[in-house]
């Protein structure tokens, strides 16, 4: 699947969604941890909505970042994501449940 299908799973786009193949999911709120472990094509579930999350997602080639549990993207994060081609989404679900939605879709349960 690609990140364009994330909207069909109930995740709400927070800006442009440049198409990117999805290989799996990744849950983490520590940026250095994510930097070294979030590999290409992962959908990253977090509650950190600042500009640094976008920088890490871009460097890691994440397929998308889903901001969970009603957390809000900072305006400069949205701006940077649009510049760097990082797809951002939001969801009311906690990271655990949001990741389960993706895992079911990917048949990774």
């Amino acid at each position: 699947m690609t990140n364009l299908e994330l909207e069909n799973l109930g995740f709400v786009p927070a800006g442009p969604v440049p198409e990117h193949e999805v290989t799996g999911g990744f849950c983490c709120d520590l940026l250095s941890w994510a930097m070294s472990r979030c590999t290409e094509g992962k959908v990253w579930f977090t509650v950190m909505g600042n500009i640094n999350t976008v920088a890490v997602a871009s460097l890691a080639d994440a397929a998308a970042v889903v901001l969970c549990q009603e957390a809000a993207w900072m305006p400069d994060a949205l701006e940077r994501a649009a510049q760097q081609g990082v797809a951002l989404f939001t969801t009311d679900l906690p990271a655990y449940e949001a990741a389960l939605v993706l895992a079911r879709k990917l048949g990774q349960l």
């Binding site: 709120d29 520590l30 940026l31 250095s32 941890w33 930097m35 070294s36 977090t46 950190m48 600042n50 640094n52 999350t53």
Partner: peptide, 16 residues
């Protein structure tokens, strides 16, 4: 509070 400070900076620099 920004998500840094996990104590992974220098170790990651060396590791990679």
């Amino acid at each position: 509070s920004l998500g840094f400070g996990a104590g992974m900076g220098l170790p990651n620099m060396k590791k990679y």
